[in-house]
Each structure stands twice: as structure tokens, then as C-alpha cells.
């Protein structure tokens, strides 16, 4: 099926139509629709267990949707061949929450790995590129260190350098500031802004850090229990009247407003072991 939206407007980088993702028989995303424009930074917000990480994993092709469409660079990831997916992935970079650097390789080897695997560039060129990427993330001179010798913030930066190594058009971040102290986290936010400025990349960030989100976002979506319940610019989101959104932005502890009967039901239900 051709993608009418991508054809009509070539500025759209990613568009999702009624995306559903399940683990086993448990549905995590219940029909997500959204669009990301080229060169835009989109922040996906949500509490833990909201499905925001699943959404990110689906966008990079690590989870297969159970139904719906993911249009990315003219291809539908939901029905793509492995070779085509690999082709698209060469133009994507992903920075994982834990960094996911290979412990048996130096930082330089980590950053150069995609280039060594996918290109026929000379070793000397790859070495220069690796050092340039490390310089760009503020880790110049660290290429011979092993990941275990780096601090948390430096690992994140090294992971960003690796994500940048193929000059991606789209960069994904999973919780870039998780587990970092506020000053280091602010440094990572600054880095994202610099990269956006210099490379005009489309950037998608999953986070629950509000300060960071408002600093870097052009567009935001707020996802709750597997559906997007609010989206817009940071200013629009601040003015959003929905109680669930307000709660999240005003950092009110969740009062769990379950239906009374459901709650009673849950408390008094006879115990059954989940059978699989």
C-alpha cells in the first residue's frame, strides 16, 4: 500500500498509523498515531510502564507491531524485508539507556564498528572519523579507554558518538539523562542541542525528565497506558488541560483513581495463579 502522507509531504520523516504492539497476548500500545517532521526534535514523555520505551523499540525495528503502519523514509517497517530494514538502520543512530557499549572493545573500536562493518573506508579514514565523533561529543582523546574505565556520563557520550558514526539522518535516545546527576544530564541535553544545530538531524528522545524535555523539544507527545493522550509544542503542552497530563507536568503523586468497584474486586478476588 502506498503511503499517501509521505508522498503528499516529503517533510514528514516518520508517520505512524494505528500502531499496535503486543508482548504475547498483552497489548502494550493500543493504536498510536503520530508524525515527525524532518529536522525536528520530538520528545516522547510518559511515566514508567506507559509504553514509551516500547514505542521507541518499535520505531528502530526491535519490536514488530501486531498491526498498524510505521512509515519511515518511504518504507513501512511493519512489513519490511530484513535487507531493507538493515538499509534503513544504516541511516539511524540509537543511543541506549545503559549505553550498550561493547565491553570487550575500546571506546574507539566501539565507535568505529559500524564503519568497519558496513563501509570499505580505509582504516586511517575510520580512525580519523572515530576521533572526530569523540571530539564532537566531548570525549576527544578517550579512544583507547575501555567502557568500564568511563564514568556514567562519559559512557552516554561514547554511546552517542557510536550512534553518530554513520552520519545518521535520524537519532534516537532512550532516557538520555537517566542515572546521571543533574549537571552531567544538562551536559547531555546541551550535546543534543548542538548536534541538532550542526547536523539538522531528526531526533527522537524518550524521557521522563521534564526540564530536559522542555529544553530540547520542538514537539512533544505524552503517552499514557499505551495511547497518546496529548501532543503539541512545549508551549501547547504546558497549557494542556487534561488532568492526567497536568498531573505529570505538575509532578503530583499519582492518586490511582480506579473505579471503586474495580478496586474492591481487586482486593477481594479469589487468588488464582496465572496459568500459561
Amino acid at each position: 500500500m502506498p503511503n499517501p502522507i509521505a508522498n503528499a509531504d516529503s517533510d514528514v520523516m516518520i508517520s505512524l498509523h494505528d500502531l499496535r504492539v503486543s508482548y504475547g497476548d498483552r497489548e502494550i500500545l493500543h493504536g498510536v498515531n503520530m508524525e515527525v517532521k524532518r529536522g525536528e526534535t520530538l520528545v516522547i514523555l510518559g511515566g514508567s510502564g506507559s509504553g514509551k520505551s516500547t514505542l521507541l523499540r518499535t520505531l528502530v525495528g526491535l519490536e514488530k507491531p501486531s498491526s498498524g503502519e510505521i512509515w519511515l523514509k518511504g518504507k513501512n517497517l511493519a512489513s519490511i524485508s530484513d535487507d531493507d530494514l538493515d538499509e534503513i538502520r544504516r541511516k539511524m543512530g540509537m543511543s541506549f539507556q545503559s549505553g550498550a557499549l561493547f565491553g570487550s572493545m575500546t571506546v574507539g573500536e566501539n565507535v568505529g564498528l559500524p564503519l568497519r562493518e558496513h563501509t570499505k573506508l580505509e582504516d586511517s579514514t575510520i580512525e580519523i572519523m572515530t576521533r572526530l565523533k569523540l571530539e564532537q561529543v566531548g570525549l576527544g582523546g578517550f579512544e583507547d579507554y575501555f567502557p568500564a574505565q568511563l564514568s556514567g556520563g562519559m559512557k552516554k557520550r561514547a554511546a552517542v558518538a557510536r550512534a553518530l558514526s554513520m552520519d545518521p539522518e535520524i537519532l534516537f535516545f532512550d532516557e538520555p539523562s537517566a542515572g546521571l546527576d543533574p549537571i552531567i544530564a544538562a551536559g547531555i541535553d546541551q550535546l543534543i542541542l548542538e548536534l541538532k544545530q550542526a547536523f539538522h538531524m531528526t531526533i527522537i528522545v524518550v524521557t521522563h525528565e521534564l526540564a530536559s524535555a522542555f529544553l530540547i523539544a520542538d514537539q512533544m507527545v505524552y503517552i499514557d497506558k499505551g495511547v497518546i493522550i496529548a501532543q503539541g509544542t512545549p508551549a501547547e503542552m504546558k497549557a494542556n488541560p487534561l488532568p492526567r497530563v497536568r498531573q505529570f507536568f505538575d509532578r503530583v503523586a499519582e492518586p490511582e483513581v480506579e473505579q471503586e468497584m474495580d478496586y474492591l474486586q481487586m482486593l477481594t478476588a479469589t487468588h488464582r495463579r496465572p496459568n500459561r
Binding site: T119, I128, M129, L132, D167
Partner: peptide, 9 residues
């Protein structure tokens, strides 16, 4: 960046 690296070389 491979182009930039080539210029550096």
C-alpha cells in the same frame, strides 16, 4: 564525516 576525515588526511 568520512568526507571531512578525507580532508583531514
Amino acid at each position: 564525516s568520512s568526507g571531512v576525515a578525507s580532508l583531514v588526511e
